[in-house]
Design a protein around this nucleic acid. Structure first.
Lengths: 169, 169
DNA sequence: AGGGTACGTCAGCCTTGTTGACATTCCAAG
DNA sequence: CTTGGAATGTCAACAAGGCTGACGTACCCT
C-alpha cells in the first residue's frame, strides 16, 4: 500500500511518487486552500455572510437561471443547508428566485444588481490571489496545476467542472 | 483590476492569466479539495471523529513532541477549538500529552500506537488518491502543481510548509 | 516580590453541516 | 383522471468545529 522505497528503485523516474513527495503534496493542498479562501472570508466577515453564501453566489453568477437542484449537485450539501443560505440571500435582495416557466416546481436563481456587486468584490479578491500565484509560477506550472487538480476530483465533480468550463469558454 | 482583454493582447503569451482561466482555476481548487478530503472523511465518519481530528493527528505524527502552540500556528484555529479536539483524542488514548520538562506550561504531544494506527489508515487513503492523481498527471505536472500551490499560500503558511518539508526530507 | 506574558482549560455562542418528517405542487404514466 | 414520484420548501433537532471571554497556573523579567 504505502510506498517506502528509497530513491531509484525501478528503472523509470518515479521519485515524484514517494510517500514523502505525496505527503508534501497533501500539506501543500492544506495550506494553499487556506490562502485560497482567506481573502473572500475576510470580506464576508462582518457582512453577516459566510463561505457558504460565497459559494452559492459564485455558482449562481456562473450559471444564471440555474435550478436549486443543480446547485445542490454542484455544492454537495443538503437542500436544507442550502435553503437556509438561499433564503437569507433572497431576503437580503442579492438573489432572485423565479418560478419555472414550464415546470413551476423549479426555482431559477439569478443575482440581482446588488448580488452581482458582491460577487464581483469577492471574485476580484480571489482572482487577484490566483493571478499572482499563476504569474509567479508560470504557464507550464499552471497547466500542471490544473491537470493534477482534475485528476484529484471525484468523477461526478469532474463532470460538473467540465460542464461549467465548457459553458463559459 | 479584472482582466477582460480577449486573447492575444500583449506580445507575450499571457493567455493563462485571463479571467476565464483564473475562474477555472478557482473552480478546480474547489472541486479538487472536495476529492482531497473525501476519503479520510469517509473513514472518520462513524468513528466519532472529524476533519479537525484528522488534521491534529496528521501534524502530531509529522512532528512528534510538538507543542500545542506550534500546532496552533500550523492549523490556524484558536486554542480553544484545538483543545476540544485534543481533549477527545487524549481521552480516547490516541494522543499522549506530556508536560514540558523545562517549561511546565508546555504540553508536548505524541501519538500512541493506536493513534499511529489511525493516522496510517487515514494517510494511506489520502496518499492513494494523491498518488493516483500524480501518476495520471505526470512528474512535470506535479512540479507545476506544487509550484502554484506554494505561490497561493500566505507567507506564514509558506514558512510552516517549508519547515515541515525540510524536517521530513 | 510583583506584574506582565505564555499556555492551557472551561463555558457558552454561532455557522453550517446533518437527518427526519411533512406539505405542496406539479408532471407523467397508467 | 387518478395516482405515484419528483422537486421544492419548511420546521425541528442535533453535531462538528469555528469563535470570544474568563480564568488559573507557570514562567520570566524587572
Amino acid at each position: 500500500m504505502t510506498d517506502r522505497r528509497p530513491p531509484s528503485s525501478s528503472g523509470e523516474s518515479l521519485l515524484f511518487l514517494t510517500d514523502e513527495q505525496l505527503r508534501q503534496g497533501i500539506e501543500a493542498m492544506f495550506f494553499a486552500y487556506r490562502g485560497f479562501t482567506a481573502d473572500p472570508d475576510r470580506i464576508l466577515e462582518g457582512l453577516d455572510y459566510g463561505r457558504a453564501h460565497h459559494r452559492a453566489i459564485h455558482f449562481i453568477n456562473r450559471a444564471p437561471g440555474t435550478k436549486v437542484s443543480n446547485l445542490l449537485d454542484i455544492l454537495g450539501v443538503t437542500k436544507q443547508s442550502l435553503n437556509r443560505v438561499l433564503r437569507k440571500l433572497i431576503a437580503d435582495g442579492l438573489v432572485q428566485s423565479r418560478v419555472g416557466r414550464n415546470d413551476k416546481r423549479e426555482r431559477h436563481l439569478y443575482l440581482t444588481d446588488e448580488g452581482r456587486a458582491l460577487e464581483r468584490t469577492l471574485s476580484d479578491a480571489q482572482r487577484a490571489r490566483m493571478r499572482s500565484a499563476y504569474r509567479a509560477a508560470g504557464p507550464d506550472a499552471v497547466a500542471g496545476f490544473r491537470k493534477v487538480l482534475e485528476a484529484m476530483m471525484d468523477v461526478d465533480m469532474q463532470a460538473s467542472y467540465t460542464r461549467l468550463k465548457e459553458s463559459g469558454a
